[in-house]
Design a protein around this nucleic acid. Sequence first.
DNA 1: TCGATGACAGCAGATGCTGTCATCACATGG
DNA 2: CCATGTGATGACAGCATCTGCTGTCATCGA
Lengths: 189, 189
Amino acid sequence: MPRWESDAQGRLERAALELFETQGFERTSVAQIARAAGLAERSFYRYFPDKREVLFTGNELEAHLVAQVEAVGPEVTPFEALLTALGTADEVFRSREFLLRRVRVIAASPALAERDLIKLADIAGALARALERRGVESGEARFVIDVAISISRRATSRWLADPDATFSELIAQAAAELREAVAPRAPVR
Amino acid sequence: MPRWESDAQGRLERAALELFETQGFERTSVAQIARAAGLAERSFYRYFPDKREVLFTGNELEAHLVAQVEAVGPEVTPFEALLTALGTADEVFRSREFLLRRVRVIAASPALAERDLIKLADIAGALARALERRGVESGEARFVIDVAISISRRATSRWLADPDATFSELIAQAAAELREAVAPRAPVR
DNA sequence: TCGATGACAGCAGATGCTGTCATCACATGG
DNA sequence: CCATGTGATGACAGCATCTGCTGTCATCGA
């Protein structure tokens, strides 16, 4: 919390999102972002270790998911624990409009797409540690988490396109779709 | 096929892997790699667009998987098509020892880990296009592919640890594990 | 033999990122 | 109301990645 100039970090984030939208990520220099936020280039790096990180602040999602996983009782399957955790993930989403802007900017830049994947991997790591604390073997934990993340991506993509659906419904729907897809012998007709 | 100095690209790859192993990725400069391979820094960028790419040449895996997916008949489920494609993926793996060195170097550097994830995402994109050509809807294709990749990671991790197992067996085993994990109600006892 | 092509080196420059040090705004205690 | 400390900020310098351009030389084709 800055002492006399308020919310420098927020100003940098907003300026960066704006500039990335209009000029693209690569064609926006750090100096430009800083100037637009009324700061020097050097100060940008006091708030973010990295030009890309300006779009990836906060750990709320990770913290939320880990807390949810740790909250359910020991009789629950790892997979079910993850699904119920994901079911309430929309609590930490910002507005759909904000998410959409962000998704578009990220999709437009390979460098940002990489960072996005790394962030997901970080969350997966945190969840893996949480599951291991429940006694799940490491490799199995990773596996179940990867699958849960796949479900989450499916649900999120639908959620961005469909303003009316509940996120937890979409999670359940994706899980059902998965069970169908992996069923040993899908009777074609 | 170079005309008077042979295999400059291969020399750069080997020098880079060596240097990354001994010094780490960040502490190795492009100039150093080039010198070790007997070239100028500028020439490195003729062969690789990017310092990281030196460990990620070739599309054999992607080409193999796409070809396999396109080879199976239309009656086969997308999920099954992906599994059979993955079952023969070890044909394009190099030696286990080489893979292990590579995996270790990549795991030791966040920057390389990012690039690894992007490469996987590229493969996922290519597979999605292949499935769409079979008439699978885009979102569903992505979803099934994400799940198949999760299976593949599980199998690969086991394969690196267990020299005796067949890759296709490990794929089948992971698929079975998945079916069990997502089963509606796992009777605990 | 001569012109085209491909492989390479060297140089200059933009940008990302880091270290260092001075400076400034404010809070506090006197 | 002022002195002093603390932490945020800025100015400056420096290194590395990556790019564009130019020049040089070996080889190839006619």
